[in-house]
Simulated scan of single mutants.
Amino acid sequence: MAGEAQADCLFCKIVEGSIPATVVRETETTVAFRDINPQAPTHVLVIPKAHYPDAAGLAAAEPSLMADVLREAGEVAAQDKVDATGYRVVFNTGVGAGQTVFHAHAHVLGGRGFEWPPG
């Protein structure tokens, strides 16, 4: 059920503390941790503590929680000092877009140049 922890979800296990992660920020509603396969000098995932399968589902069900995720993405960028030079926030939604963990999450990427269009 959306919003409730899922026993088989990697990110839900990080939220509960049963799987370790390099946490860089945590709020009442979000956790931000370093990606284990970084694609840039700053590559941090910001997730809601509540389980939603993807960004669209999260935004539809709890817009204020989606706002928390985006606000924390900005805080991560500032903390890692990439806010002045530029950073990217990416939500992969669905297999075709490269989503591999079906718990909504934002990738905060910075510290290097990016091309457009992406991917």
Results as ranks from 00 to 15, higher is better:
Gly3Asp: 03
Gly3Phe: 07
Glu4Asp: 14
Glu4Met: 13
Gln6Thr: 00
Ala7Val: 12
Asp8Met: 04
Cys9Leu: 05
Phe11Leu: 07
Phe11Trp: 08
Cys12Leu: 13
Cys12Asp: 09
Cys12Lys: 00
Ile14Gln: 01
Val15Thr: 06
Val15Lys: 06
Glu16Arg: 14
Glu16Trp: 03
Gly17Thr: 04
Gly17Asp: 01
Gly17Lys: 02
Ser18Leu: 08
Ile19Gln: 09
Ile19Ala: 08
Pro20Ile: 06
Ala21Asn: 05
Ala21Tyr: 02
Thr22Asn: 14
Thr22Lys: 11
Val23Ser: 10
Val23Ile: 15
Arg25Asn: 14
Thr27Cys: 11
Thr29Leu: 01
Ala32Phe: 03
Ala32Ile: 06
Arg34Trp: 02
Asp35Phe: 01
Ile36His: 09
Asn37Thr: 07
Pro38Met: 01
Gln39Ile: 05
Gln39Phe: 04
Ala40Asn: 05
Ala40His: 02
Pro41Ser: 12
Pro41Asp: 06
Thr42Asp: 06
Thr42Met: 13
Thr42Ala: 10
Leu45Ser: 02
Leu45Trp: 09
Leu45Asp: 05
Leu45Thr: 04
Val46Lys: 04
Ile47Ser: 10
Ile47Gly: 03
Ile47Gln: 08
Pro48Lys: 12
Lys49Asp: 10
Lys49Thr: 03
Lys49Val: 12
Ala50Thr: 00
His51Met: 08
His51Thr: 09
Pro53Ser: 13
Pro53Asn: 12
Asp54Gln: 11
Asp54Pro: 07
Ala55Gly: 03
Ala55Lys: 04
Ala56Pro: 06
Ala56Val: 15
Gly57Lys: 06
Leu58Val: 01
Leu58Asp: 05
Ala59Cys: 13
Ala59Asn: 13
Ala59Glu: 13
Ala59Gly: 14
Ala60Ser: 15
Ala61Asp: 15
Glu62Gly: 03
Pro63Val: 03
Pro63Phe: 08
Leu65Gln: 09
Leu65Gly: 04
Leu65Glu: 09
Met66Ile: 00
Met66Glu: 02
Ala67Met: 00
Ala67Asn: 09
Asp68Thr: 11
Asp68Arg: 12
Val69Met: 01
Leu70Thr: 06
Leu70Met: 15
Glu72Trp: 03
Glu72Cys: 08
Ala73Leu: 00
Ala73Met: 11
Glu75Lys: 05
Ala77Cys: 07
Ala78Leu: 14
Ala78Lys: 15
Gln79Glu: 13
Asp80Trp: 02
Lys81Glu: 15
Lys81Ser: 15
Lys81Asp: 14
Val82Pro: 04
Val82Asn: 04
Asp83Tyr: 04
Gly86Val: 03
Tyr87Ser: 01
Tyr87Cys: 01
Val89Glu: 01
Val90Ala: 12
Val90Ile: 15
Phe91Asn: 07
Phe91Leu: 12
Phe91Lys: 07
Asn92Met: 05
Gly94Gln: 09
Gly94Arg: 10
Gly94Trp: 04
Val95Ile: 08
Gly96Ile: 10
Gly98Pro: 09
Gly98Asp: 12
Thr100Phe: 00
Thr100Val: 13
Thr100Asp: 07
Phe102Ala: 04
Phe102Asn: 07
His103Ala: 01
His107Ile: 08
Val108Ala: 05
Leu109Gln: 11
Leu109Ser: 10
Leu109Glu: 12
Gly110Thr: 10
Gly110Glu: 03
Gly111His: 02
Arg112Cys: 06
Arg112Ala: 02
Phe114Pro: 10
Glu115Ala: 08
Trp116Leu: 14
Pro118Ser: 14
Pro118Tyr: 13
Pro118Thr: 13
Gly119Ser: 11
Gly119Met: 05
Gly119Glu: 11
